[in-house]
Simulated scan of single mutants.
Amino acid sequence: MSSKMKNIQLLSCSSLLTIGLLIFFAFSMELQAETVQPSSTQVRVENPYLIHPGDILQISVWKEEDLQREVLVLPDGSISFPLVGQVVASGLSIEALQGSLAEALRQYIPDPVITVSATQLLGNRIYVLGQVNKPGEYLINRPVDVMQALSMSGGLTAFGAANKVKVLRRNGDKQIVFPFKYKEVTEGENLYQNILLKAGDVVIVP
């Protein structure tokens, strides 16, 4: 057999081996992808707490004894503070409100250092209604999802339509409805339904 024919055979064998390895690698990756299951313990990034009407805040300015106040966030979402007057607080994080106050006070005090803390989170309320054992209004001071809210309300009654739960959320002039299938979530399926609730959300179990 000529050396040319041998080279062709070697090249063909090498090509077949390469193709075989590529097919094996692709098949292995496919098997690996199929065995990956969504984890029910995924880390959920939690947004900072946003101030709500009804919350009580403690505000102080460093080295300014006359600028220390405990203020109530009014129904319109504003607070009143010396020198700056009315300031919008609702919808802001604590850090954002500190920045807003510092900017407003800068014309009176050079480089003011503001400290804001929430002493009572009275505006952060959710509602669980319908076929639960303890329906009503719930004050929350931490992130709460739908399952946790249902647990706080004593769970579903025997008459509750477990797969027809709804979360109502007001967004301006519109109302958004989030369907929630209790049985699916308890079985570890479609966990995306278990959303974090926001102030004013209403969970309804028909």
Results as ranks from 00 to 15, higher is better:
residue 201 D to E: 09
residue 190 N to W: 07
residue 191 L to S: 05
residue 44 R to G: 05
residue 177 V to M: 12
residue 168 L to C: 04
residue 202 V to T: 15
residue 75 P to R: 04
residue 19 I to A: 08
residue 158 A to N: 06
residue 120 Q to F: 01
residue 92 L to W: 04
residue 151 S to P: 00
residue 143 P to F: 01
residue 120 Q to E: 14
residue 149 A to V: 03
residue 119 T to C: 02
residue 28 S to Q: 13
residue 122 L to M: 09
residue 204 I to P: 02
residue 7 N to D: 15
residue 189 E to V: 14
residue 33 A to N: 04
residue 34 E to R: 15
residue 157 T to I: 01
residue 93 S to Q: 02
residue 69 R to F: 12
residue 77 G to M: 04
residue 193 Q to I: 08
residue 19 I to K: 08
residue 26 A to W: 01
residue 82 P to I: 12
residue 169 R to A: 11
residue 48 P to A: 02
residue 189 E to F: 14
residue 20 G to H: 10
residue 37 Q to V: 15
residue 176 I to T: 14
residue 47 N to A: 14
residue 157 T to E: 07
residue 89 A to I: 00
residue 10 L to M: 11
residue 72 L to K: 01
residue 30 E to H: 14
residue 201 D to A: 08
residue 158 A to F: 06
residue 82 P to R: 06
residue 131 Q to G: 05
residue 34 E to Y: 14
residue 67 L to M: 01
residue 42 Q to T: 14
residue 46 E to P: 01
residue 32 Q to V: 13
residue 198 K to I: 03
residue 48 P to G: 02
residue 187 E to N: 15
residue 62 W to S: 10
residue 193 Q to R: 12
residue 115 T to V: 12
residue 135 P to G: 03
residue 105 L to A: 08
residue 41 T to R: 15
residue 192 Y to P: 01
residue 14 S to T: 13
residue 90 S to L: 03
residue 62 W to R: 11
residue 191 L to Q: 05
residue 13 C to G: 08
residue 26 A to E: 07
residue 183 K to M: 09
residue 206 P to C: 12
residue 160 G to K: 10
residue 56 I to H: 08
residue 103 E to M: 01
residue 56 I to D: 00
residue 70 E to V: 11
residue 118 A to R: 05
residue 130 G to K: 05
residue 193 Q to T: 09
residue 185 V to N: 01
residue 54 G to A: 07
residue 33 A to P: 01
residue 25 F to Q: 09
residue 166 K to E: 13
residue 191 L to W: 10
residue 111 D to W: 06
residue 19 I to M: 10
residue 182 Y to Q: 06
residue 73 V to G: 05
residue 29 M to F: 10
residue 97 L to E: 00
residue 147 M to G: 04
residue 52 H to N: 13
residue 70 E to N: 11
residue 103 E to I: 07
residue 146 V to K: 04
residue 165 V to F: 09
residue 138 Y to F: 15
residue 144 V to I: 08
residue 152 M to R: 05
residue 173 D to M: 11
residue 158 A to C: 04
residue 30 E to Q: 07
residue 180 F to Q: 13
residue 160 G to N: 09
residue 170 R to D: 11
residue 189 E to P: 00
residue 161 A to C: 03
residue 38 P to E: 11
residue 73 V to R: 00
residue 112 P to V: 11
residue 55 D to Y: 05
residue 80 S to F: 06
residue 15 S to P: 00
residue 63 K to G: 00
residue 155 G to K: 02
